[in-house]
Simulated assay, not measured.
Amino acid sequence: MAATLCGRLLPKQGWLPLTQSVRHGSKAVTRHRKPMHILKQKLMAITEYIPPKPAAPPGALTPRVKPVQEESGLVLLLKKDLQTMFQDCKMIAVIQNNATNSEDMLLLKHRLHKHGIKIKFIPNQVMRSYLADSPYINMGPLFIGQTVLFVSKEPKVKEMLLSLRTSPQMVLLGACIEKILLSRQGVLNYAKLPSVTVVQGELVSGLTMLTSQTASMLQHHPAHLSLILQQYLKQQAPAGSTNGTPGESPPKAEETA
């Protein structure tokens, strides 16, 4: 009987009880770390040690030397032509060529040749390299894409614009007229100006008008004074006198007979 009681009361091997003991009590205290003050953070960031970078051994890094390309004889010849063109020509216009065929280009050359205007084709690379060392460096941004030059020794802007009206593929970008750089709107305004002969005629007429007015104003006072004196002499003379001298009477008819 005792064996049966012990077998019932004692737990069997591998058997878990239905109830488990749980510890009830105070929890463990965990201390939280305080954040660092902002001023201390800044000070630590400033005074942080930065180790120097290891220097490269001598001869490990060789400097890259760009090879200098010498300009060809054709480029030098084109630059020389550009220099003489800027010295001799008073009008150099930059035109954008938007796929103009050969026939239209030939007709445009013929129309411009009547007014003494020539068309020149110069590569943009050569043009920009020449303008970089010249006083006309501000013309460099105009040479983008397919461009041509309209060159003439005299500033024939009106004739050039009339010729461009028949060729819509050719667009005016800017020009250098009499050593002055002009935009497209500046070229249009320049074309509206009168010619030099008209301006000189207007200037001469204005000067002559001013001189004539000055001379008339200077002669006005002496003439007016002489008229006043003549009127005064007429008033001082007696009523019967016909001559200009006072006190003399006209001769009688008998004496004259």
Score class of each variant (00 low, 15 high):
Val94Cys: 10
Ser212Trp: 01
Gln41Arg: 15
Asn98Tyr: 07
Pro250Thr: 08
Arg128Asn: 14
Leu77Trp: 03
Leu43Arg: 11
Pro155Gly: 09
Ala2Ser: 11
Ala253Arg: 09
Leu76Pro: 01
Ile119Asp: 10
Gln69Cys: 01
Leu108Asp: 01
Tyr190Lys: 05
Ser129Trp: 01
Gln213Ala: 15
Ser163Thr: 07
Leu173Met: 13
Lys79Tyr: 02
Arg23Ser: 10
Ser249Leu: 12
Pro17Met: 05
Pro52Gly: 05
Ser102Gly: 10
Ala99Pro: 00
Ala2Arg: 08
Glu103Tyr: 13
Arg165Leu: 04
Asp81Gly: 06
Pro168Val: 01
Val126Arg: 01
His221Leu: 15
Lys179His: 15
Gly73Trp: 05
Lys114Trp: 06
Lys252Ser: 13
Pro168Lys: 02
Leu162Met: 12
Val148Arg: 07
Glu254Arg: 11
Val75Cys: 04
Leu193Gly: 02
Pro58Gly: 07
Met91Gly: 03
Leu229Tyr: 06
His110Trp: 02
His110Gly: 03
Gln231Glu: 15
Cys176Asp: 05
Glu159Pro: 13
Val148Pro: 01
Arg111Met: 08
Gly201Arg: 15
Lys12Gly: 13
Ser195Val: 04
Leu218Asn: 05
Leu227Asp: 15
Tyr190Arg: 06
Ile144Arg: 08
Pro135Gln: 08
Ala237Asn: 15
Leu43Asp: 13
Gln20Glu: 10
Glu70Met: 11
Leu193Asn: 04
Pro135Asn: 05
His113Cys: 05
Gly201Asn: 14
Leu77Asn: 10
Leu181Cys: 13
Val68Met: 04
Gly7Lys: 07
Gln235Trp: 03
Leu107Glu: 14
Ser21Gly: 06
Ile119Gln: 15
Glu178Val: 04
Glu71Ala: 08
Ser21Thr: 11
Lys34Glu: 11
Val22His: 08
Ser152Asn: 06
Ala132Met: 07
Arg64Tyr: 10
Glu103Met: 12
Thr208Ala: 12
Thr147Pro: 00
Gln213Met: 14
His221Cys: 06
Leu74Asn: 01
Gln185Val: 00
Met36Trp: 07
Asn101Val: 08
Gly201Ala: 14
Ser212Cys: 03
Cys89Ile: 00
Ala253Leu: 11
Leu78Cys: 05
